[in-house]
Write a protein that binds this DNA or RNA. Structure first.
Length: 420
RNA sequence: GUGGCGGUAGCUCAAUUGGUAGAGUCCCAGAUUGUGAUUCUGGCUGUUGUGGGUUCGAGUCCCAUCCGUCACCCCA
Protein backbone atom coordinates (compact mmCIF):
# COMPACT_ATOMS: atom_id res chain seq x y z
CA UNK A 1 0.00 0.00 0.00
CA UNK A 2 3.00 2.28 0.23
CA UNK A 3 2.61 3.53 -3.34
CA UNK A 4 -1.14 3.79 -3.14
CA UNK A 5 -2.69 7.21 -2.82
CA UNK A 6 -5.05 7.52 0.07
CA UNK A 7 -7.82 9.92 0.87
CA UNK A 8 -6.84 12.82 3.11
CA UNK A 9 -7.08 11.97 6.79
CA UNK A 10 -10.54 12.45 8.21
CA UNK A 11 -12.11 12.66 4.76
CA UNK A 12 -14.13 9.65 3.78
CA UNK A 13 -15.39 8.04 0.61
CA UNK A 14 -19.05 7.19 0.68
CA UNK A 15 -19.14 3.82 -1.03
CA UNK A 16 -21.98 1.89 -2.67
CA UNK A 17 -22.53 -0.03 0.57
CA UNK A 18 -23.38 3.23 2.35
CA UNK A 19 -24.86 5.45 -0.33
CA UNK A 20 -28.39 3.99 -0.05
CA UNK A 21 -28.49 5.14 3.57
CA UNK A 22 -27.33 8.60 2.57
CA UNK A 23 -29.92 8.79 -0.20
CA UNK A 24 -32.66 7.63 2.12
CA UNK A 25 -31.65 10.26 4.67
CA UNK A 26 -31.46 13.01 2.05
CA UNK A 27 -34.80 12.05 0.56
CA UNK A 28 -36.44 12.08 3.99
CA UNK A 29 -34.91 15.44 4.84
CA UNK A 30 -36.00 17.07 1.57
CA UNK A 31 -39.56 15.87 2.01
CA UNK A 32 -39.54 17.09 5.59
CA UNK A 33 -38.26 20.56 4.59
CA UNK A 34 -40.98 20.78 1.98
CA UNK A 35 -43.55 20.19 4.72
CA UNK A 36 -42.37 23.37 6.40
CA UNK A 37 -41.92 25.51 3.29
CA UNK A 38 -38.16 26.01 3.40
CA UNK A 39 -36.22 26.77 0.20
CA UNK A 40 -32.81 25.44 -0.65
CA UNK A 41 -29.76 27.62 -1.17
CA UNK A 42 -26.48 26.27 -2.53
CA UNK A 43 -23.45 28.35 -1.77
CA UNK A 44 -19.79 27.79 -2.70
CA UNK A 45 -17.72 25.51 -0.50
CA UNK A 46 -14.97 28.12 -0.54
CA UNK A 47 -15.33 31.65 0.82
CA UNK A 48 -13.10 34.58 1.60
CA UNK A 49 -11.43 33.88 4.92
CA UNK A 50 -12.72 37.16 6.35
CA UNK A 51 -16.32 35.98 6.20
CA UNK A 52 -15.75 33.23 8.75
CA UNK A 53 -13.55 35.37 10.96
CA UNK A 54 -16.27 37.98 11.16
CA UNK A 55 -19.19 35.59 11.53
CA UNK A 56 -17.79 32.93 13.83
CA UNK A 57 -15.47 35.10 15.92
CA UNK A 58 -11.71 35.62 15.83
CA UNK A 59 -10.98 33.89 19.12
CA UNK A 60 -13.06 30.75 18.64
CA UNK A 61 -11.35 27.39 18.30
CA UNK A 62 -12.77 26.99 14.82
CA UNK A 63 -11.18 30.16 13.51
CA UNK A 64 -7.97 29.90 15.50
CA UNK A 65 -6.95 26.35 14.73
CA UNK A 66 -9.48 24.35 12.75
CA UNK A 67 -9.97 26.15 9.45
CA UNK A 68 -8.58 24.96 6.15
CA UNK A 69 -7.24 28.33 5.08
CA UNK A 70 -4.84 28.84 2.21
CA UNK A 71 -3.66 31.52 -0.15
CA UNK A 72 -4.79 31.30 -3.73
CA UNK A 73 -1.39 31.55 -5.36
CA UNK A 74 -2.82 32.91 -8.55
CA UNK A 75 -4.06 36.15 -7.00
CA UNK A 76 -2.94 36.19 -3.37
CA UNK A 77 -6.42 35.95 -1.86
CA UNK A 78 -6.88 34.14 1.45
CA UNK A 79 -9.61 31.54 1.03
CA UNK A 80 -11.16 29.09 3.47
CA UNK A 81 -13.03 25.84 3.07
CA UNK A 82 -16.29 26.49 4.91
CA UNK A 83 -16.27 25.17 8.50
CA UNK A 84 -20.02 25.73 8.86
CA UNK A 85 -22.90 26.91 6.72
CA UNK A 86 -24.61 29.81 8.43
CA UNK A 87 -22.03 32.42 7.45
CA UNK A 88 -22.27 31.56 3.75
CA UNK A 89 -26.04 31.39 3.85
CA UNK A 90 -26.34 34.82 5.48
CA UNK A 91 -23.72 36.25 3.13
CA UNK A 92 -25.69 35.01 0.14
CA UNK A 93 -28.94 36.41 1.52
CA UNK A 94 -27.35 39.83 1.98
CA UNK A 95 -25.53 39.77 -1.34
CA UNK A 96 -28.68 38.97 -3.30
CA UNK A 97 -31.12 41.03 -1.22
CA UNK A 98 -33.16 37.98 -0.33
CA UNK A 99 -34.63 39.76 2.67
CA UNK A 100 -35.95 42.65 0.62
CA UNK A 101 -39.51 41.32 0.85
CA UNK A 102 -39.30 40.23 4.47
CA UNK A 103 -38.45 36.96 6.15
CA UNK A 104 -36.99 33.99 4.36
CA UNK A 105 -36.90 30.35 5.37
CA UNK A 106 -33.82 28.71 3.91
CA UNK A 107 -31.90 25.46 4.11
CA UNK A 108 -28.65 24.09 2.77
CA UNK A 109 -26.81 20.80 2.88
CA UNK A 110 -23.30 19.76 2.09
CA UNK A 111 -19.77 19.15 3.27
CA UNK A 112 -18.05 21.29 5.90
CA UNK A 113 -14.37 21.22 6.83
CA UNK A 114 -12.63 21.44 10.18
CA UNK A 115 -9.08 20.39 10.92
CA UNK A 116 -9.76 18.37 14.07
CA UNK A 117 -8.46 15.01 15.22
CA UNK A 118 -10.82 12.49 13.59
CA UNK A 119 -12.96 10.31 15.78
CA UNK A 120 -16.14 8.35 15.33
CA UNK A 121 -18.82 10.84 14.33
CA UNK A 122 -16.26 13.57 13.84
CA UNK A 123 -14.41 14.02 10.58
CA UNK A 124 -12.39 16.69 8.83
CA UNK A 125 -14.85 16.70 6.00
CA UNK A 126 -18.30 16.16 7.43
CA UNK A 127 -21.80 16.93 6.28
CA UNK A 128 -24.40 19.21 7.71
CA UNK A 129 -27.96 20.04 6.90
CA UNK A 130 -28.61 23.60 8.02
CA UNK A 131 -31.88 25.46 8.45
CA UNK A 132 -32.02 29.25 8.73
CA UNK A 133 -34.99 31.56 9.23
CA UNK A 134 -33.86 35.10 8.40
CA UNK A 135 -35.83 38.20 9.25
CA UNK A 136 -38.07 36.82 12.00
CA UNK A 137 -37.80 38.21 15.50
CA UNK A 138 -40.43 36.47 17.59
CA UNK A 139 -40.14 33.19 19.45
CA UNK A 140 -42.53 31.60 16.94
CA UNK A 141 -39.66 30.66 14.64
CA UNK A 142 -37.62 29.25 17.53
CA UNK A 143 -40.62 27.10 18.33
CA UNK A 144 -41.10 26.11 14.69
CA UNK A 145 -37.49 24.95 14.57
CA UNK A 146 -37.82 22.82 17.67
CA UNK A 147 -41.07 21.27 16.52
CA UNK A 148 -39.72 20.50 13.08
CA UNK A 149 -36.61 18.82 14.44
CA UNK A 150 -38.77 16.73 16.73
CA UNK A 151 -40.75 15.65 13.68
CA UNK A 152 -37.58 14.75 11.79
CA UNK A 153 -36.47 12.43 14.57
CA UNK A 154 -39.83 10.71 14.35
CA UNK A 155 -39.52 10.40 10.57
CA UNK A 156 -36.04 8.93 10.90
CA UNK A 157 -37.01 6.62 13.75
CA UNK A 158 -34.60 8.26 16.18
CA UNK A 159 -37.05 9.95 18.52
CA UNK A 160 -36.37 7.53 21.36
CA UNK A 161 -32.62 8.09 21.28
CA UNK A 162 -32.44 11.88 21.29
CA UNK A 163 -33.29 14.45 23.93
CA UNK A 164 -33.52 18.22 23.86
CA UNK A 165 -31.64 20.75 25.96
CA UNK A 166 -32.31 24.47 25.74
CA UNK A 167 -30.98 27.66 27.25
CA UNK A 168 -31.10 31.39 26.74
CA UNK A 169 -27.96 33.44 26.32
CA UNK A 170 -29.81 36.76 26.53
CA UNK A 171 -28.63 39.78 24.61
CA UNK A 172 -25.05 40.84 23.97
CA UNK A 173 -25.12 43.21 26.94
CA UNK A 174 -26.35 40.51 29.31
CA UNK A 175 -23.60 38.18 28.14
CA UNK A 176 -20.96 40.88 28.54
CA UNK A 177 -22.13 41.60 32.10
CA UNK A 178 -22.22 37.92 32.91
CA UNK A 179 -18.79 37.36 31.42
CA UNK A 180 -17.28 40.10 33.60
CA UNK A 181 -18.90 38.75 36.74
CA UNK A 182 -17.80 35.27 35.85
CA UNK A 183 -14.19 36.29 35.33
CA UNK A 184 -14.21 38.26 38.56
CA UNK A 185 -15.72 35.32 40.42
CA UNK A 186 -13.20 32.81 39.11
CA UNK A 187 -10.30 35.18 39.68
CA UNK A 188 -11.40 35.47 43.28
CA UNK A 189 -11.17 31.66 43.49
CA UNK A 190 -8.13 31.22 41.29
CA UNK A 191 -6.52 28.79 43.69
CA UNK A 192 -9.35 26.33 43.14
CA UNK A 193 -9.12 26.40 39.34
CA UNK A 194 -7.55 23.57 37.43
CA UNK A 195 -5.19 24.06 34.50
CA UNK A 196 -7.94 23.95 31.92
CA UNK A 197 -9.97 26.55 33.73
CA UNK A 198 -7.04 28.93 34.12
CA UNK A 199 -6.40 28.73 30.41
CA UNK A 200 -10.07 29.36 29.63
CA UNK A 201 -10.48 32.19 32.13
CA UNK A 202 -9.87 34.88 29.53
CA UNK A 203 -10.43 32.99 26.31
CA UNK A 204 -13.75 31.30 27.00
CA UNK A 205 -14.90 31.63 30.63
CA UNK A 206 -18.34 30.23 29.81
CA UNK A 207 -16.69 26.92 29.06
CA UNK A 208 -15.38 26.64 32.59
CA UNK A 209 -18.97 26.03 33.62
CA UNK A 210 -18.91 22.93 31.46
CA UNK A 211 -15.98 21.34 33.27
CA UNK A 212 -16.01 17.61 33.89
CA UNK A 213 -13.64 17.94 36.82
CA UNK A 214 -15.58 16.80 39.94
CA UNK A 215 -13.27 18.83 42.16
CA UNK A 216 -14.62 22.01 40.62
CA UNK A 217 -18.32 21.20 40.79
CA UNK A 218 -19.16 23.17 43.91
CA UNK A 219 -17.22 26.16 42.67
CA UNK A 220 -19.01 26.06 39.34
CA UNK A 221 -22.42 25.62 40.89
CA UNK A 222 -22.02 28.77 42.97
CA UNK A 223 -20.86 30.81 39.98
CA UNK A 224 -22.89 33.78 38.70
CA UNK A 225 -25.77 32.62 36.51
CA UNK A 226 -26.32 34.03 33.06
CA UNK A 227 -30.03 33.59 33.69
CA UNK A 228 -29.85 36.29 36.38
CA UNK A 229 -28.61 38.83 33.86
CA UNK A 230 -31.40 38.39 31.34
CA UNK A 231 -33.56 41.45 30.76
CA UNK A 232 -37.33 41.31 30.59
CA UNK A 233 -37.59 40.87 26.85
CA UNK A 234 -35.13 37.96 26.91
CA UNK A 235 -37.06 36.34 29.75
CA UNK A 236 -40.33 36.78 27.90
CA UNK A 237 -38.83 35.32 24.74
CA UNK A 238 -37.44 32.29 26.57
CA UNK A 239 -40.71 31.73 28.44
CA UNK A 240 -42.61 31.77 25.15
CA UNK A 241 -40.25 29.17 23.67
CA UNK A 242 -40.79 26.90 26.66
CA UNK A 243 -44.53 27.46 26.43
CA UNK A 244 -44.44 26.40 22.80
CA UNK A 245 -42.60 23.20 23.68
CA UNK A 246 -45.05 22.47 26.48
CA UNK A 247 -48.01 23.06 24.16
CA UNK A 248 -46.55 20.63 21.65
CA UNK A 249 -45.77 18.06 24.32
CA UNK A 250 -42.06 17.98 23.56
CA UNK A 251 -39.94 17.09 26.60
CA UNK A 252 -36.87 19.21 27.19
CA UNK A 253 -34.41 20.19 29.87
CA UNK A 254 -33.29 23.73 30.57
CA UNK A 255 -29.52 23.51 30.82
CA UNK A 256 -28.13 26.81 32.15
CA UNK A 257 -24.62 25.74 31.17
CA UNK A 258 -25.46 25.17 27.56
CA UNK A 259 -23.33 27.55 25.50
CA UNK A 260 -22.40 27.65 21.85
CA UNK A 261 -19.00 27.59 20.29
CA UNK A 262 -19.75 30.30 17.78
CA UNK A 263 -19.87 33.93 18.84
CA UNK A 264 -22.94 34.97 16.90
CA UNK A 265 -25.61 33.32 19.05
CA UNK A 266 -27.99 35.17 21.40
CA UNK A 267 -31.26 34.41 23.20
CA UNK A 268 -32.43 30.86 22.54
CA UNK A 269 -29.84 28.14 22.05
CA UNK A 270 -30.53 24.42 21.92
CA UNK A 271 -28.92 21.06 21.39
CA UNK A 272 -30.38 17.69 20.55
CA UNK A 273 -28.10 15.17 22.22
CA UNK A 274 -27.72 11.42 22.39
CA UNK A 275 -25.72 9.17 24.64
CA UNK A 276 -25.11 6.68 21.86
CA UNK A 277 -22.18 8.40 20.20
CA UNK A 278 -19.62 8.60 22.98
CA UNK A 279 -18.25 12.07 23.44
CA UNK A 280 -19.76 13.31 20.17
CA UNK A 281 -23.22 13.44 21.68
CA UNK A 282 -24.49 16.56 19.95
CA UNK A 283 -26.38 15.63 16.85
CA UNK A 284 -28.17 18.87 16.05
CA UNK A 285 -27.73 22.32 17.51
CA UNK A 286 -28.47 25.96 16.91
CA UNK A 287 -30.33 28.96 18.14
CA UNK A 288 -30.93 32.62 17.54
CA UNK A 289 -28.38 34.98 16.03
CA UNK A 290 -30.09 38.33 15.77
CA UNK A 291 -26.90 40.31 15.26
CA UNK A 292 -25.25 38.34 12.48
CA UNK A 293 -26.94 39.84 9.45
CA UNK A 294 -25.91 43.35 10.49
CA UNK A 295 -22.48 42.12 11.55
CA UNK A 296 -21.90 40.86 8.02
CA UNK A 297 -22.91 44.18 6.53
CA UNK A 298 -26.60 43.65 5.85
CA UNK A 299 -29.52 45.75 6.94
CA UNK A 300 -30.14 44.58 10.52
CA UNK A 301 -32.42 41.56 10.63
CA UNK A 302 -33.14 39.04 13.36
CA UNK A 303 -32.56 35.40 12.57
CA UNK A 304 -32.39 31.91 13.98
CA UNK A 305 -31.29 28.56 12.71
CA UNK A 306 -29.59 25.29 13.39
CA UNK A 307 -27.54 22.54 11.82
CA UNK A 308 -27.41 18.78 12.15
CA UNK A 309 -24.44 16.50 11.70
CA UNK A 310 -25.33 13.99 9.01
CA UNK A 311 -22.65 11.41 9.83
CA UNK A 312 -23.71 11.35 13.47
CA UNK A 313 -27.34 10.83 12.58
CA UNK A 314 -26.44 8.09 10.12
CA UNK A 315 -24.40 6.25 12.75
CA UNK A 316 -27.38 6.40 15.05
CA UNK A 317 -29.65 5.05 12.34
CA UNK A 318 -27.25 2.20 11.62
CA UNK A 319 -26.88 1.30 15.26
CA UNK A 320 -30.66 1.35 15.62
CA UNK A 321 -30.88 -1.06 12.68
CA UNK A 322 -32.81 1.43 10.55
CA UNK A 323 -30.86 0.85 7.36
CA UNK A 324 -32.93 0.92 4.16
CA UNK A 325 -33.23 -2.05 1.86
CA UNK A 326 -30.55 -2.31 -0.80
CA UNK A 327 -32.01 -1.13 -4.08
CA UNK A 328 -32.45 -4.03 -6.49
CA UNK A 329 -33.11 -3.97 -10.22
CA UNK A 330 -36.42 -5.28 -11.53
CA UNK A 331 -34.71 -7.42 -14.11
CA UNK A 332 -31.30 -9.01 -14.59
CA UNK A 333 -30.64 -9.67 -18.24
CA UNK A 334 -28.69 -12.85 -18.91
CA UNK A 335 -27.36 -13.31 -22.42
CA UNK A 336 -25.40 -16.19 -23.89
CA UNK A 337 -24.16 -16.39 -27.46
CA UNK A 338 -23.05 -13.91 -30.09
CA UNK A 339 -26.47 -13.14 -31.53
CA UNK A 340 -27.90 -12.87 -28.01
CA UNK A 341 -25.20 -10.44 -27.00
CA UNK A 342 -26.16 -8.18 -29.88
CA UNK A 343 -29.85 -8.50 -29.11
CA UNK A 344 -29.48 -7.85 -25.38
CA UNK A 345 -29.09 -4.04 -25.46
CA UNK A 346 -32.29 -3.75 -27.48
CA UNK A 347 -34.09 -5.90 -24.94
CA UNK A 348 -32.76 -3.80 -22.06
CA UNK A 349 -33.67 -0.48 -23.67
CA UNK A 350 -37.15 -1.69 -24.54
CA UNK A 351 -37.81 -2.68 -20.94
CA UNK A 352 -36.38 0.61 -19.67
CA UNK A 353 -38.77 2.44 -22.00
CA UNK A 354 -41.47 0.87 -19.87
CA UNK A 355 -39.83 2.16 -16.69
CA UNK A 356 -38.26 -1.09 -15.56
CA UNK A 357 -34.87 -1.07 -13.86
CA UNK A 358 -32.74 -3.40 -15.92
CA UNK A 359 -29.27 -4.65 -15.07
CA UNK A 360 -27.66 -5.93 -18.24
CA UNK A 361 -25.07 -8.58 -17.60
CA UNK A 362 -21.64 -7.39 -18.57
CA UNK A 363 -18.33 -9.08 -19.09
CA UNK A 364 -19.35 -12.43 -20.50
CA UNK A 365 -19.05 -15.49 -18.32
CA UNK A 366 -20.74 -18.83 -18.32
CA UNK A 367 -24.48 -19.23 -18.21
CA UNK A 368 -24.26 -20.53 -14.69
CA UNK A 369 -22.20 -17.61 -13.45
CA UNK A 370 -24.61 -15.18 -15.09
CA UNK A 371 -27.51 -16.83 -13.30
CA UNK A 372 -25.64 -16.59 -10.01
CA UNK A 373 -25.15 -12.89 -10.57
CA UNK A 374 -28.80 -12.51 -11.48
CA UNK A 375 -29.69 -14.07 -8.16
CA UNK A 376 -27.16 -12.01 -6.23
CA UNK A 377 -28.45 -8.79 -7.80
CA UNK A 378 -31.73 -9.18 -5.94
CA UNK A 379 -33.74 -8.80 -9.14
CA UNK A 380 -37.23 -10.25 -9.08
CA UNK A 381 -36.85 -11.69 -12.57
CA UNK A 382 -34.11 -12.93 -14.79
CA UNK A 383 -34.57 -12.42 -18.47
CA UNK A 384 -32.70 -14.97 -20.47
CA UNK A 385 -31.69 -14.36 -24.03
CA UNK A 386 -29.93 -16.99 -26.10
CA UNK A 387 -29.31 -17.19 -29.79
CA UNK A 388 -32.61 -19.09 -30.24
CA UNK A 389 -34.58 -16.22 -28.69
CA UNK A 390 -32.56 -13.58 -30.48
CA UNK A 391 -33.31 -15.15 -33.83
CA UNK A 392 -37.07 -14.69 -33.35
CA UNK A 393 -37.19 -11.55 -31.15
CA UNK A 394 -38.27 -13.35 -28.01
CA UNK A 395 -37.08 -13.50 -24.41
CA UNK A 396 -37.43 -16.02 -21.59
CA UNK A 397 -38.69 -14.62 -18.30
CA UNK A 398 -37.79 -16.54 -15.17
CA UNK A 399 -39.06 -15.53 -11.72
CA UNK A 400 -36.25 -15.54 -9.16
CA UNK A 401 -38.09 -14.59 -5.99
CA UNK A 402 -41.56 -16.00 -6.29
CA UNK A 403 -42.78 -19.35 -7.48
CA UNK A 404 -43.72 -19.57 -11.12
CA UNK A 405 -42.73 -21.15 -14.38
CA UNK A 406 -40.32 -19.66 -16.82
CA UNK A 407 -42.10 -18.45 -19.92
CA UNK A 408 -40.99 -17.40 -23.34
CA UNK A 409 -42.66 -14.39 -24.93
CA UNK A 410 -42.13 -11.82 -27.68
CA UNK A 411 -40.01 -8.86 -26.55
CA UNK A 412 -42.93 -6.56 -27.32
CA UNK A 413 -44.99 -8.32 -24.64
CA UNK A 414 -42.25 -8.71 -22.02
CA UNK A 415 -42.67 -5.40 -20.20
CA UNK A 416 -46.40 -5.80 -19.71
CA UNK A 417 -45.89 -9.28 -18.38
CA UNK A 418 -43.17 -8.17 -15.95
CA UNK A 419 -45.23 -5.29 -14.63
CA UNK A 420 -48.44 -7.27 -14.34
C1' G B 1 -3.02 19.63 19.14
C1' U B 2 -2.22 15.82 23.87
C1' G B 3 -2.61 10.77 25.85
C1' G B 4 -4.33 5.18 25.84
C1' C B 5 -5.30 0.94 22.61
C1' G B 6 -5.08 -1.21 17.80
C1' G B 7 -3.63 -2.41 12.22
C1' U B 8 -2.50 -10.08 9.28
C1' A B 9 -6.26 -12.10 2.17
C1' G B 10 -11.73 -7.85 -0.78
C1' C B 11 -14.54 -8.87 4.30
C1' U B 12 -14.55 -11.33 9.57
C1' C B 13 -10.59 -13.27 12.27
C1' A B 14 -6.49 -17.27 13.88
C1' A B 15 -1.01 -17.96 14.20
C1' U B 16 2.30 -21.38 21.24
C1' U B 17 8.55 -18.59 24.92
C1' G B 18 10.70 -15.09 18.06
C1' G B 19 11.14 -20.84 14.10
C1' U B 20 8.21 -22.35 6.64
C1' A B 21 1.51 -17.02 7.33
C1' G B 22 -3.79 -20.12 8.15
C1' A B 23 -9.41 -20.66 8.43
C1' G B 24 -14.28 -19.04 7.22
C1' U B 25 -16.56 -16.01 3.68
C1' C B 26 -16.25 -13.98 -1.18
C1' C B 27 -14.77 -14.92 -6.17
C1' C B 28 -13.65 -18.59 -10.33
C1' A B 29 -14.23 -23.58 -12.44
C1' G B 30 -16.42 -28.40 -12.32
C1' A B 31 -20.27 -32.23 -10.61
C1' U B 32 -25.15 -30.26 -13.95
C1' U B 33 -22.43 -28.64 -22.34
C1' G B 34 -29.62 -23.49 -21.47
C1' U B 35 -31.15 -22.43 -15.59
C1' G B 36 -29.73 -19.00 -9.69
C1' A B 37 -30.07 -19.39 -3.34
C1' U B 38 -28.65 -25.67 -0.83
C1' U B 39 -24.76 -29.61 -1.26
C1' C B 40 -19.99 -31.74 -2.89
C1' U B 41 -14.96 -31.26 -5.32
C1' G B 42 -10.92 -28.30 -6.92
C1' G B 43 -8.59 -23.46 -7.53
C1' C B 44 -7.15 -17.96 -6.88
C1' U B 45 -6.19 -14.37 -3.03
C1' G B 46 -0.97 -11.40 1.17
C1' U B 47 5.24 -6.53 0.23
C1' U B 48 1.48 -9.12 7.99
C1' G B 49 -0.25 -0.43 7.23
C1' U B 50 4.74 1.85 5.79
C1' G B 51 10.09 2.63 6.70
C1' G B 52 14.19 1.51 9.65
C1' G B 53 16.61 -1.44 13.75
C1' U B 54 17.84 -5.97 16.96
C1' U B 55 18.45 -11.32 15.64
C1' C B 56 21.01 -17.11 12.44
C1' G B 57 15.69 -16.11 11.94
C1' A B 58 10.51 -10.91 13.20
C1' G B 59 3.27 -11.09 12.06
C1' U B 60 5.55 -11.51 17.14
C1' C B 61 10.75 -7.40 20.19
C1' C B 62 12.55 -1.84 19.61
C1' C B 63 12.17 3.18 17.09
C1' A B 64 9.79 6.35 13.69
C1' U B 65 5.68 7.31 10.64
C1' C B 66 0.68 6.72 8.52
C1' C B 67 -4.26 5.24 9.40
C1' G B 68 -8.20 3.75 12.73
C1' U B 69 -10.32 3.88 17.55
C1' C B 70 -11.27 5.76 22.64
C1' A B 71 -10.61 9.83 26.00
C1' C B 72 -9.14 15.09 26.40
C1' C B 73 -9.77 19.73 23.72
C1' C B 74 -13.67 21.37 20.77
C1' C B 75 -17.95 20.70 18.07
C1' A B 76 -22.64 18.95 14.06
Amino acid sequence: MSNVLRAVRGMNDILPADSPLWRYFERTVRGWLDLYGYSEVRTPILEHTGLFKRAIGEVTDIVEKEMYTFVDELNGESLTLRPEGTASCVRAAIEHNLLFEGGKRLWYAGPMFRHERPQKGRYRQFHQVGIEALGYAGPDLDIEHLLMTARLWRLLGLADHIRLEINSLGGADARARHREKLIAYFQAHEAELDEDAKRRLHTNPLRILDTKNPAMQTLVEAAPQLMDELDDSARTHFAAVQQGLDDAGIPYRVNPRLVRGLDYYNLTVFEWVTDRLGSQGTVCAGGRYDGLVAQLGGKPAPACGYAMGVERLLVMMQEAGLTPAVPAPDVYLVNVGEAAKRFAPEVAETLRDAGLKVLLHGGGGSFKSQMKKADASGARHAIIVGDDEAAVGEVAIKPLRLAGEQQRVALTRAAELLKG
